[in-house]
Design a protein around this nucleic acid. Structure first.
Lengths: 229, 229
DNA sequence: CGCAAAATTGAACCCAATCAATGTTCGTGG
DNA sequence: CCACGAACATTGATTGGGTTCAATTTTGCG
């Protein structure tokens, strides 16, 4: 593993306060691997071998049952995922696949648990990380159950615009079918919702969305920190 | 606080390994209070004052937005709730109300955080508790997104029967409207689903459900440890 | 009993998924 | 550089699960 990548990981909140020898112990046995897009990294139901960390690219967490499938979260750098299963040493409840090409750091699960029980600073960092993720899932659940698909899309546009510097135009990082899946709707429904939202202050092109009337969009979306963070 | 209750709390996984002085520090300032049914204990959006623990009775966690409302979880004794908000000292994302009469133990949030940063055993226990809850929410999300309302009901019947000793008949602990809300459907829909399930091995009375053909019900419900635990 | 609340049943409606057809984009090879 | 094909995107029609509204029946309790 390169020094620059090591530094990147070292600076994660999760590892920042860990004692040096413990950090070295963890990373000595780590694997850093590059994966092409659409590769399954984790199968739900399996026992955790590694704690995964997305260093570059993006990873989709999803779950399937009886022929149906649903996206649970999208993970972007630099973040751990499926920490809860590793800590508890219980089966994964979600699968994970790369969306784009991705660089993934993998720390042996057994060693993570070992350091966790020896290093109090690490234990506290794990709590913070877990609490953060927990709140993320609660937000996802609220977003799903308390909003229509059009409202989810409207809020996604507002949030993406924020992330892209409030320029008033949002460019798509991926296909619309992938976006649709992230937002919990079909591609057809995304299309219809985009044209619906043209009544609420947006203009949608093939590669980008322009916000023409932010307050109208916001009035429709009703963003709230209790869901959107 | 009575000794018996103190022992109960002391024996929770969350507090079992905590050093004596820390435990006493926490419980010295604790409040133990009895609430009637349908009382709101926590409002989403507020900052946490206390870590709550259900000692007796049951508590519903729910969230509301724009006139809609949804049940997120039902908490039964003896369990903490909304630990993540207390640890991170951030606003509650969910509200909580008593379903039945309930006995609630409340530990000052500030002191919980204090002991958390001093007591490594407590920190580790918090991780386990949080990881458990995290997985609970993921399961709830999967249950919601990957199953129809009739399937959720069928699985609820199977699980309740397990909890009541696999006797083949499940008695309702609450009104059907409350049950409907827990299962994420309207009372009307619950009625229809109950009659639908009569084609899949159950007979539903006004106060109980009888499982006449468990394998048929199970075939319809398709329970899985990856959702139902 | 008799009444109020809860539960059931029926009808209409709504959101979103599915199926089907058409239109667009974009990468590729002639 | 253009033509072509395949995947992606849009549009329309239909279906389905679920809610809402309204009316009726049952339940439980004074």
């Amino acid at each position: 593993m390169r020094a620059s990548e090591l530094t990147l990981v070292r600076n994660l909140p999760l590892f920042h306060e860990v004692a040096d020898p413990h950090f070295e112990y963890l990373t000595a046995a780590a694997l850093l691997q590059r994966f092409p897009p659409h590769v399954v990294l984790i199968d739900e139901g399996a026992l955790p071998d590694f704690l995964h960390i997305v260093v570059e690219g993006s990873v989709e967490l999803f779950a399937a049952h009886d022929g149906r499938e649903t996206t649970i979260d999208i993970i972007r750098p630099v973040t751990t995922f499926i920490l809860a299963a590793v800590i508890r040493d219980e089966v994964y409840l979600k699968s994970a696949r790369t969306l784009t090409e991705a660089l993934i750091l993998m720390l042996p699960a057994e060693k993570v648990r070992e350091v966790f029980s020896k290093d109090a600073a690490f234990a506290r960092a794990v709590v913070n990380e877990l609490a953060l993720r927990y709140r993320g899932v609660v937000r996802a659940l609220k977003n799903e159950k308390l909003r229509s698909s059009a409202e989810r899309l409207a809020n996604w546009i507002l949030k993406s615009d924020e992330q892209q510097g409030r320029a008033g135009h949002v460019t798509f990082a991926c296909d619309k079918r992938t976006l649709a899946s992230q937002l919990g709707m079909t591609p057809e429904n995304l299309s219809r919702n985009l044209s619906l939202l043209s009544k609420h202050g947006i203009k949608s092109g093939s590669r980008e969305i322009v916000i023409e009337n932010r307050s109208a969009l916001s009035a429709f979306a009703q963003p709230t920190s209790l869901i959107d963070g």
